[in-house]
Design a protein around this nucleic acid. Structure first.
Length: 478
RNA sequence: GGCCCUAUCGUCUAGAGGCCUAGGACACCUCCCUUUCACGGAGGCGACAGGGAUUCGAUUUCCCUUAGGGCUACCA
């Protein structure tokens, strides 16, 4: 039996980090087993589902490198399939029409809550006589279809990450609605649990890997498999991604969509790497690896049971490791859009060599791509403003003289090599009889307006190439 | 309220009865490299929630307590 797994996002929002992480585990499991990874879009909630969300999810999956083998399939296009199964359940007596009104349900729940009881449907319409049904229909009630859940039933399954899980039928909230209200002899819109089971059966899914927030659904779904007379697949419930407060990460926690991470300057392999590490550890204790490297060693056995808090520090570190490992040729095209968005004037073609040098210069300073804007700002602006500390450096004894010497040398020569620049610094230091620090500090201050920054010699070279060094030193000298 | 799940450094985790004086990574601190800031390198700080039981021996097994989380829809 070949392994078939799926990721089944609901297009009611952009691709969420939690969904993406579940997709990562499914992808890894499929690739590890040489199985098939399927993408199914669960859009049975027509109110909340939006095409743009579907697009966002598809784009996000692709960006992350989570390629799927089959799909995307859309539940909204498979309604007939669900209706057939609903009819089957009706025919074999495991489902029935329920005419309880919302008001009656509300009253019931309110009473249960008042008595500190768990809210649940009391199965009051489970055995209606034809006469009773006719009476409700005559009242104009539109029935839902409920699937019978026996209270004394015990549901147990062997979960691939949390071993044996047991659930009592009485804790499932009574007979479950599988089809929305419709006219008396119609089959209404199928509901989540029914659609999922029918699809998983139809698509011959062998392993259902999803977040632990689905555990109660699993109990219900197992009953549905039985009602439909089909073998139950294997389940695995992964731990949830938690916020700082230790709660399930939700849209309210700020950045949660893959899109957001992308725009913040995280790169796909780093984000995926972090998601893999959140809840799973590789047997050899490695922490930096791609999907392809992780797949052969991926195993649900090594998935942790407890939820994990999302840690920005660790993500930033992983992201920085990937960025630092990128050669300038590869990194440059990633940075250009950020520079352009910041309004920096640059010509990717004509300035290519200069941009590559700049990229090499700042690469090691970047933890996120977007940081390239602030770090390299002084290389793109016409003038700089000295901050307080920088002004102090230029005001220190000997600084003016040093800068004047440097200025003259640079006016005389339009391009320096690194060796020549170092030689020049050395020479000026000796000439002016100052400490090297004075030269370096005043030069940096004049050039960038700041006292911190990337390698000074490299910065000088780059600025001089673009004719920015001379005017800035002049400006600093007043 | 009910049910279910979970519990190792601040965080992510390794650990499947003696290998543990509990290992790694991030963060933090110190030092080195360096004109600076980063990067990089070397150290340091730092945890088995509590109580029972089983055992010659428990981080590891069992029970209870506590804490945290999830679920409790005609959403998915």
């Amino acid at each position: 039996m070949t392994v078939r797994v799926r990721i089944a996002p609901s297009p009611t929002g952009n691709l969420h980090i939690g969904t993406a992480r579940t997709a990562v585990f499914n992808w890894l499991f499929a690739r590890h087993c040489g199985g098939t990874f399927i993408l199914r879009v669960e859009d049975t909630d027509t109110e909340r589902s939006k095409p743009e969300y579907t697009q966002n999810i598809l784009d996000g999956m692709q960006w992350l490198g989570l390629n799927w083998d089959e799909g995307p399939l859309f539940q909204s296009q498979r309604l007939d399939l669900y209706r057939q199964s609903i009819q089957t359940l009706l025919d074999n007596g495991s489902a029935y029409r329920c005419y309880t009104s919302n008001e009656e349900l509300d009253t019931l729940r309110a009473a249960q809550e008042a008595n500190h009881q768990a809210p649940r449907y009391d199965n009051r319409h489970r055995n209606l006589t034809p006469e009773q049904e006719a009476a409700f229909i005559a009242e104009g009630r539109r029935p839902v279809i409920r699937f019978k859940i026996d209270d004394d039933r015990e549901i147990t399954w062997l979960d691939l990450v949390r071993d044996e899980v047991t659930w009592k039928g009485s804790d499932l909230g009574g007979d479950m609605v599988i089809s929305r209200a419709a006219d008396e002899h119609e089959l209404g819109q199928p509901l989540y649990n029914l659609a999922v089971v029918v699809d998983d059966i139809d698509m011959q899914i062998t392993h259902i890997i999803r977040g632990e927030d689905h555990i109660a659904n699993t109990a219900k779904q197992i009953l549905l498999y039985e009602g439909l007379g089909v073998a139950v697949p294997t389940f695995a419930h992964t731990p949830l991604i938690l916020s700082d407060e230790g709660k399930k990460l939700s849209k309210r926690d700020g950045v949660t969509s893959i899109d957001d991470f992308k725009h913040m300057g995280y790169i796909a392999p780093a984000l995926v790497n972090y998601m893999m590490l959140l809840g799973w550890s590789s047997p050899d204790a490695e922490e930096l690896f791609t999907l392809d490297v992780a797949a052969p060693q991926f195993d649900l056995d090594r998935v942790h049971k407890a939820g994990g808090k999302f840690d920005w520090d660790k993500l930033n570190w992983i992201n920085s490791q990937y960025i630092h490992a990128m050669p300038a040729e590869q990194l440059l095209p990633e940075l250009i859009p950020y520079w352009q968005a910041a309004g920096f004037k640059l010509d990717p073609e004509a300035d290519r060599s200069w941009l590559l040098q700049l990229t090499s210069l700042i690469g090691a300073s970047l933890a996120r791509l977007d940081e390239c804007v602030e770090i390299s700002r002084v290389f793109f602006t016409d003038t700089v403003t000295l901050n307080e500390e920088a002004a102090t450096k230029i005001a220190q004894p000997g600084a003016k003289e040093v800068l004047t010497s440097l200025l003259m040398a640079m006016q005389a020569k339009s391009d320096f090599t690194e060796i020549e620049a170092q030689e020049l610094i050395k020479q000026v230091t000796k000439e002016q009889n100052v400490k090297k620090g004075v030269v370096m500090q005043s030069l940096r201050a004049a050039l960038t307006g700041e006292v911190h920054g990337p390698d000074l010699i490299q910065s000088l070279l780059l600025l001089h190439q673009h004719h920015l060094a001379v005017p800035r030193i002049q400006q600093a000298l007043g």
